[in-house]
Computed example of a mutant assay.
Amino acid sequence: MSGKPIPGRMTADAEGDVVVFLIGMRINSWWAVRSWVPVFTAMPRMIRELSRDRGVGMLGTRFVMGFPRHVGVIQYWESKEKLLAYASDRNGEHRPAWAAYNRRVRAGRDKVGFWHETYVVPAGSYENVYANMPAHGLGEAVGVVPVGRRGERAADRLAA
């Protein structure tokens, strides 16, 4: 988290569907540094690329650690179409990183694992509250507004 706490109760200023993309890796063998370091270093390159051009569709991101073997990223996207377009862009960082990972797997180097999950959350099916916190999660990605603007209770925000 960055920034100063925002006093009071806030909620994300999101409208419409929200796309949440979770992606990560698992180090299966610490000693096989040449197998997992390329996977580990590929994600920051992609995040930098995505952060330079907001038109690509990534709204925000947060790295998460699951010690001792897991590293992951939570991403918020404008739409599934923009996420899929980035994944298949032949000129971006993703395609070469994915191809390199697949070459390692075919070569029998199971020293690193990879996973991702994509969730398209329809409008009215998500809610959040941040109390005395800096902007966080979806709120950090899209901005925050006072809870009262979207409903005082979770049930109110989910119905909106």
Rank of each mutant, 00 (worst) to 15 (best):
S29E: 12
R157N: 10
V18Y: 13
A123Y: 10
F114T: 05
A87M: 10
R104F: 02
T41K: 12
D13F: 08
V33S: 00
V147P: 02
V18L: 11
A154G: 10
W115K: 01
R153G: 00
E127W: 06
R157D: 02
M65N: 15
D156F: 04
A135L: 08
A99L: 09
T41H: 00
G124I: 07
P122V: 00
R153H: 08
D17P: 04
G57Y: 01
M133T: 05
E152I: 12
W77F: 08
N91R: 13
S51W: 01
A97M: 10
E78F: 10
H116C: 07
S125T: 14
G113I: 03
V142E: 09
V145R: 05
V19F: 12
F40S: 06
V145A: 04
V145M: 06
D17Q: 03
H116S: 11
A159R: 13
M1I: 12
T61M: 14
M10F: 07
P68F: 07
L59S: 01
K4L: 09
P146V: 05
A155Y: 00
G8C: 03
W77C: 08
P44Y: 10
V64H: 08
E140I: 00
M43V: 15
L84S: 09
R109T: 01
V56H: 04
G57P: 00
E140H: 10
P146H: 06
Q75G: 03
L138Y: 03
S29P: 01
A131F: 10
M1V: 15
R26P: 03
E81R: 14
S2W: 14
G24C: 04
V37I: 11
V73Q: 10
P96W: 08
M46Q: 04
R9I: 11
N91A: 15
Y119V: 04
R95V: 14
V64R: 00
K4C: 02
M65A: 15
A97V: 10
I47H: 03
A141E: 09
D89F: 11
V71S: 09
G60L: 11
R69G: 05
G8E: 03
A123K: 15
A159K: 11
E81P: 07
D89A: 12
K82H: 05
E78V: 09
S29N: 15
K82L: 11
A123H: 14
N28G: 12
E15W: 11
G137Y: 06
V71C: 03
I47V: 15
W36L: 09
